[in-house]
């Protein structure tokens, strides 16, 4: 059922049957370290290159989630997946051996929200019994794609985030699982003209504010309807801005707000500055932490919205600003 301007409410909720999160060494040493299904000492994740490593993250996350749900690749109708690399090479090379029909997605760091939304729509529409929704990122491959070679010496400002090495995957279906997706609000591209690629939080906060505001409007609820409103990778700077922007629109989410980027690292101890980022940040935090809280009913209803900064090295060099996007998914306990 379509609701308001940008939202869908599923008449029959789509269930998250199971979830898996895999992550790198630094993430394993972070506050969520013991929640991941698998962690890796090897920064190359048993590959030869950063890109192969990231592909392996996706391969393992998909394998583990199917194993946990006791399913085979033949039972999965579609995969919705994406990453940050040019032409989605981590997704292509990581998932091709499963021989599952696939939709490759690019939503920058918001990809997990996009995958969950499209996967839930596909299942709710009756076009698939089971789909996998997943996303990944890798510090090495992302630095190389977007910033500098890893051996290059530079100083990171306090507003900079640290790309999470990890991948999260869920299986969506009609039968009961660990949580339910009851609605989505798809975000618009929002550009406030920020050009600083070292301050992604500020680039994405307006998009997150817009998506949350629209969600509250479309469903006609107040922020208190949610136990948590969880953004993807705004970090400390973005969090401050988001809360302020929504206050201007008349909503106070300071009590409910949480950010995956802030949760996944201990910024004091791990020197990650503003927090974690990347598709893997929200994906792995969702699969390994948020869903566990919902499963044990510590939180009953959560608004999960991965946030993405839409830039490439080309758009950056050509002097374009960095617009943001965010996709809301309403997740409730069973």
């Amino acid at each position: 059922m379509i609701v308001g301007k940008q939202s869908i409410q599923f008449e029959q909720a789509v269930h998250i049957i199971n979830a898996a999160g895999v992550a790198g060494k630094k993430e394993a040493e972070g506050p969520l370290g013991n929640l991941f299904d698998k962690t890796y000492e090897d920064p190359y994740i048993n590959g030869q290159t950063w890109e192969e490593g990231e592909a392996n993250l996706q391969k393992d996350a998909a394998a583990i989630v199917m194993e946990k749900a006791k399913m085979t690749p033949e039972q999965i109708r579609y995969i919705f997946s994406g990453d940050l690399l040019n032409q989605l090479i981590a997704t292509s090379f990581g998932l091709m051996d499963y021989n599952i029909p696939i939709f490759g997605l690019y939503g920058a760091c918001s990809t997990m929200g996009e995958a969950l939304s499209l996967g839930a729509m596909t299942v709710a529409g009756g076009y698939a019994e089971h789909v996998i929704a997943m996303a990944s990122s890798h510090f090495g491959s992302a630095e190389k794609t977007f910033r500098f070679p890893l051996e290059y010496g530079n100083q990171r400002p306090f507003s900079a985030t640290w790309t999470v090495t990890g991948s999260g995957a869920v299986i969506l279906g009609k039968e009961k699982g660990i949580a339910r997706i009851t609605g989505i609000t798809t975000g618009k591209i929002v550009d406030y003209g920020v050009k600083d690629s070292m301050n992604m939080g500020a680039c994405m906060a307006p998009a997150a504010a817009d998506a949350i505001y629209q969600n509250l409007m479309d469903f006609d609820v107040s922020p208190e309807a949610y136990d948590r409103i969880i953004t993807g990778d705004l970090g400390y700077v973005g969090q401050t801005i988001l809360i302020e922007l929504l206050k201007d629109k008349g909503f106070d989410i300071s009590k409910q707000h949480m950010d995956c980027g802030i949760e996944i690292f201990d910024s004091e101890r791990q020197d990650t500055h503003a927090g974690g980022s990347g598709c893997g940040c929200s994906a792995v935090t969702f699969c390994s932490y948020i869903l566990k809280q919902i499963e044990k009913k510590a939180w009953k209803k959560v608004l999960f919205l991965p946030t993405g900064a839409l830039l490439s090295t080309i758009s950056f060099n050509e002097g374009k600003s960095v617009p943001g996007v965010a996709h809301c998914v309403i997740v409730e306990c069973e």
């Binding site: 100083q155 306090f158 301050n199 500020a202 401050t240 302020e244």
Partner: peptide, 23 residues
């Protein structure tokens, strides 16, 4: 001021800066 200029000014204000003298 345009909306963008205002926002950029606000961002600058809330973004923590490194300790310049120490740097």
């Amino acid at each position: 001021k345009t909306k963008e200029e205002k926002y950029n000014a606000y961002v600058k204000q809330v973004t923590p800066t490194t300790n310049m003298w120490l740097n």
